[in-house]
Design a protein around this nucleic acid. Structure first.
Length: 517
RNA sequence: GCCGCCAUCGUCUAGCCCGGUCAGGACGCCAGGUUUUCAUCCUGGAAAUCAGGGGUUCGAAUCCCCUUGGCGGUACCA
């Protein structure tokens, strides 16, 4: 029987969760779910220079928001899910961040001693060596090599010229040092990538990678291999940018005598100019999409399609997370990079918005309404209304807007006449070449019809019935002036919908105003 | 430069492994329909000489070779 699948997402806290990172996380998550395995979140914070305050928390909360739940690893104190009752501790370095599971620490900076111990073991075994070269010399060697059209690799000066005694002396006198991997010469390192198939790289093109930095922190390469081994990672699913350094990792697993996990290298996400997606191309942080009013269902659905499809002759493109957990297959992930083009996200988002119940839509829309000026003033002016009355009103607006929204931040935006007094030119009231008398008569008829409907019967269906009855077959004559009178706009939802939302009193008032014009 | 990965409509992609329908779908775009306008919805259309060239074959997007292009890596960043 195969080992239980254990995969992980391992972001670096250098900023917000990037959409590319979200896709890596999603694919890992789906792979775990599909195979009945564990999904783990660990934090790779070994680069102190690029560390961003608050990034760990932000990364976790974005992941929580989209609903990629973990079985293990790092959590926010307020959203801890620990159904299996695993070991749980609060992170020493990040207050409020909890680490759940038996295989921690799940934060690399908390595991420094272990990395150091393993690096020294490697040195003792002759698989790695101390290097005392300063940056200046390194730069010089590199420049020379480039000038000679050679690959800019380390020249192994310290391996060749520094004796064991000298190493001991330097170590004793606290000289700054790094530990480098001794990459064997002339070896073809082959591995079977789950997405790309056989990949082979000659070890001669692999540099003697620094494993331990002079600040005592490990590099990604060392830390990654050690904790993936300790956490029992079975598949390393990560971005394509790691493909060229995979031989280093394999060499490390071999040097330690550990089982080598399987590798899967995901294609990159590209911006519209086909370059690697970057911040300059607009929003790349998941948070930005949350703020713009995209639903997590749409974001997940969109992102999963960027490099994966269900195959089997099916043309299905709309998937829920739960569904994806059943059908996702790494074998159907593409090799080529995918351009991140938002048009389809908008469409997908509109689809998901249409599926929402009015109550759900209301819940999700409230925070977006709260940011609108027109809403704020409306809210203030309506101080006599009860909270319930306001809620009912907003839900009516939303019911009308539901099929018109691409994202939640547009809420109310195109229908501000529901919230503010309207202003328009009276000529707009005319349907085609209507005479002033005909217009007056039309408005009069609307007033009569609407007046005839009682407050209790002020229902959309009823309003429609009555107005259509009055209009007969010349609908435009009645409905166009009514629309303008109620909305002050040429483009709007139907006059019946307008009247229904605005209510009897306000509708009649606006009609009266039109008549006076 | 060197090393590696990749290559089907504008974009996401099916088809490629096991050669043989006008290369299929979706988004977007255009047109028409429903409709009092908008949106929704429905119908239709344009859109890839399958990066290019050479083979193999009766027949290639599919198999082989070469070229080109794009991207990634080449850090005491991840």
């Amino acid at each position: 029987m195969d080992k239980k699948v254990r995969v992980r997402f391992a972001p670096s806290p250098t900023g917000y969760l990037h959409v590319g990172g979200l896709r890596s996380a999603l694919y890992n998550y789906l792979f775990a779910k599909k195979n009945g395995g564990d999904f783990i979140l660990k934090i790779e914070d070994t680069d102190r220079k690029r560390f961003v305050e608050g990034a760990v928390e932000s990364l976790i909360s974005s992941l929580d928001w989209v609903g990629l739940n973990r079985n293990e690893g790092v959590f926010l104190k307020e959203h801890v899910l620990n159904p299996e009752n695993k070991k749980i501790i609060e992170s020493a370095s990040y207050p409020g961040v909890m680490e759940i599971g038996e295989f921690g620490p799940y934060i690399q900076s908390e595991n420094l001693a272990v990395y150091k111990k393993y690096a020294e073991e490697l040195v003792a075994a002759g698989k790695a060596y101390y290097c005392f070269c300063e940056q200046e010399r390194l730069d010089q060697v590199k420049a020379e090599r480039i000038a000679n059209k050679q690959a800019p690799m380390y020249d192994r000066y310290c391996l060749k010229n520094v004796s064991a005694e000298e190493v001991n002396e330097k170590l004793k006198s606290n000289c700054a040092y790094t530990i480098r991997l001794k990459v064997p010469a002339d070896e073809v390192i082959e591995f079977e990538d789950l997405i790309r198939g056989k990949v082979s790289i000659n070890s001669n093109t692999v540099d003697d990678q620094v494993l331990m930095k002079s600040d005592g922190f490990p590099t990604y390469h060392l830390a990654n291999v050690i904790d993936d081994h300790m956490m029992g990672t079975t598949q390393v699913i990560r971005g394509e940018e790691w493909l060229p350094s995979t031989p280093k990792h394999i060499l490390l697993y071999r040097a330690f005598g550990w089982d080598i996990p399987e590798f899967a290298h995901l294609p990159l996400l590209l911006s519209t100019d086909k370059k690697k997606l970057s911040k300059r191309m607009g929003d790349v942080a998941v948070e930005d999409y949350i703020k713009k009013g995209y639903l997590k269902e749409a974001i997940i659905n969109f992102v999963v399609l960027l490099g994966w499809n269900i195959g089997d002759g099916s043309t299905q493109e709309v998937f829920s997370l739960a569904e994806l957990e059943q059908v996702f297959d790494l074998k159907r992930v593409h090799k080529a990079g995918a351009v991140f083009d938002l048009k389809k996200l908008d469409w997908l988002n509109a689809q998901y918005i249409k599926k929402l119940s009015v109550d759900e839509l209301y819940e999700k829309s409230l925070e977006f309404f709260a940011q609108k000026e027109f809403y704020k003033t409306w809210n203030v002016e309506r101080e006599s209304w009860s909270a319930e009355e306001k809620e009912i009103y907003l839900k009516k607006v939303l019911q009308i807007e539901q099929e018109r929204l691409n994202n939640l931040s547009e809420v109310g935006e195109n229908n501000q006449f529901f919230f503010a007094p309207i202003a328009y030119d009276k000529t707009m009231l005319n349907w085609k070449d209507m005479s002033p008398e005909a217009l007056r008569e039309s408005l009069q008829k609307s007033i009569e019809t609407l007046s005839g409907i009682s407050e209790e019967n002020w229902e959309l269906k009823n309003i429609e019935e009555k107005l259509f009855a009055t209009a007969g077959d010349k609908k435009g004559d009645l409905l166009w002036p009514l629309r303008v009178a109620l909305s002050g706009a040429q483009k709007s939802p139907s006059p019946m919908e307008l009247a229904w939302v605005l209510g009897k009193t306000e509708s009649l008032q606006r009609l009266q105003n039109a008549l006076e014009k």
